[in-house]
Amino acid sequence: MPDGFLNAPTSLATGAVAAAGLALALRGARRELDGPTAPMAGLVATFVFAAQMLNFPVGAGTSGHLLGGALAAVLVGPWTAVLCLSVVLIVQSLLFADGGITALGTNITLISLVGVLVGWAVTRVLLAMLPKRVGVIAPAAAIGAFLSVPTAAGVFAALYALGGTAPLPFGSVLTAMVGWHVVIGLGEAAITGLVVASIVGVRPDLVYAARPALAARPLQLATAPR
């Protein structure tokens, strides 16, 4: 989101939410950053930075790009994912004017906090219901990824209703935002499913969300190289 869409009080409020979320993430990530998660975090952030630049067409002269919340949370854990995505958004904003500077709090709130929260929560709920096998992680992550995109779009519409710089009816912004982002969410699901399936396929022990399933089969865990 560029500068100018939301007024100053709303931007300050989302800035405070983003700062609080980042502070919590810095604490929470300490518990996640053991073993392979630390090197994976660098890879995940770099991959999301690259992927967010690559817009895919969704028809009717519109494009979408990865947000990456579910992808990052499944690979490195939700708190580390918030840190990874926030660093991506900060670099985009400060170095490339891709996303406004006063909009940074809103972008972190929507993409980093809402995206990770919804993507991770949906994936966790699905994994709790499904058999403890690593094969179900990528499909679960894809569904979490899919739902995270229209949810973040819906939260944007709510923020715009609270503090948008043009007086527009909430329903019309909400319908348009969620409508486009349901389609974009399909791309988010495809990329997330593909990447998670690839890493689960070669090294499931590098995938944060695979830990419970791997703990259920300790003999195979022992064959993984360091």
């Binding site: 560029p2 519109t62 948008g164 527009l168 912004v173």
Partner: peptide, 19 residues
């Protein structure tokens, strides 16, 4: 092409507020 947010901003007429 414009992404989802920018498309909505253009359609709803708040794109020009972007800086």
């Amino acid at each position: 092409a414009p992404d989802g947010l920018n498309r909505v901003a253009a359609d709803k007429g708040f794109q020009e507020a972007a800086s």
